[in-house]
Write a protein that binds this DNA or RNA. Structure first.
Lengths: 157, 157
DNA sequence: ATTGAAAGAGTCTCAGT
DNA sequence: ACTGAGACTCTTTCAAT
């Protein structure tokens, strides 16, 4: 992480392409980017060694599994020094899939995924609110996710 | 349509495992779950047909690519009927990777990924604020991401 | 660093259960 | 529905450039 990475256009194109679809074969991706499959292989191995690439993950449609509710919760702390302790307690709640320490309105900001509103209510009132050091919370419930996409790391022109 | 799929424990275990790491072979995953590799293959094909599985994606450490800044922006609309038009304008901003229509404090909520604060400032002031129909915005900048993980779809016991 | 080809490993299909 | 084996495809290594 302390080393400066020197990534060229080919590296970025590979990343851009495989962030969207990691199933493409090295040979096919090589064809598309005008190099051999062997070169794709070497580059990906390098990116893994450098820690840029962290593996591949199955993309799952959570709604079709019955996880219909996404909520965001802004958290106000009693004292900002309680961050570590509160973060640790929050991590014990499996429905919380993400926690950020933030500037701005809130001290902390979490994302929650649940099967229904009943379960969300349970997480908010029985779990989150009981954590020592949390002053109060504000909840945003997502009625619709308009889009979600990857950052653009390679822009052709 | 998102109901009523009949998925059993095996399906959920496959999903749970491959959400974390999609590189495992069918044979190895089968061993772990006490079935043959062929069965894993059939199940995954079924999950793809049902639309539960949407492919695989490369997991990338954005920070090592120089994308150091994550920000969340809450948006107040002049009228909530402007949602569609504003959503469309927001989608044109490549740094915005996610947009949700929400209840609660804000009408809309976006996530932004940038290389630095300069770029974030540009996105906020030259792009977002110029969109017709946006009343005002509140920005949360992430100072640290404490954790990020997948939802739990299978809990052993 | 990239290539092409051979060796090794994984996916996919199918007949049998 | 699951299994195991054969056919096929992809990954990985490596000598040559």
């Amino acid at each position: 992480m302390s080393h400066k990475l020197n990534l060229d256009h080919l590296d970025l194109q590979i990343i851009q392409s495989m962030m969207e679809n990691a199933e493409i074969s090295y040979a096919d991706l090589g064809k598309r980017l005008s190099v051999s499959g062997g070169t794709i292989h070497v580059r990906i191995k390098k990116l893994q060694e450098f820690g840029v690439v962290k593996g591949t993950r199955l993309a799952v449609d959570m709604r079709s599994l019955g996880y219909d509710v996404i909520a965001f919760v802004g958290i106000y702390l009693e004292k900002s020094s309680l961050y570590e302790s509160v973060a640790n307690d929050i991590k014990q709640i499996p429905e919380v899939i993400r926690l950020n320490y933030t500037t701005g309105n809130y001290s902390m900001f979490v994302e929650i995924v649940c099967k229904d509103i009943i379960q969300l209510k349970h997480v908010l009132h029985e779990q989150l609110q009981n954590i020592k050091g949390i002053d109060r919370t504000e909840t945003l419930i997502s009625l619709e996710e308009s889009f979600r996409r990857n950052p653009i790391v390679y822009r052709p022109n």
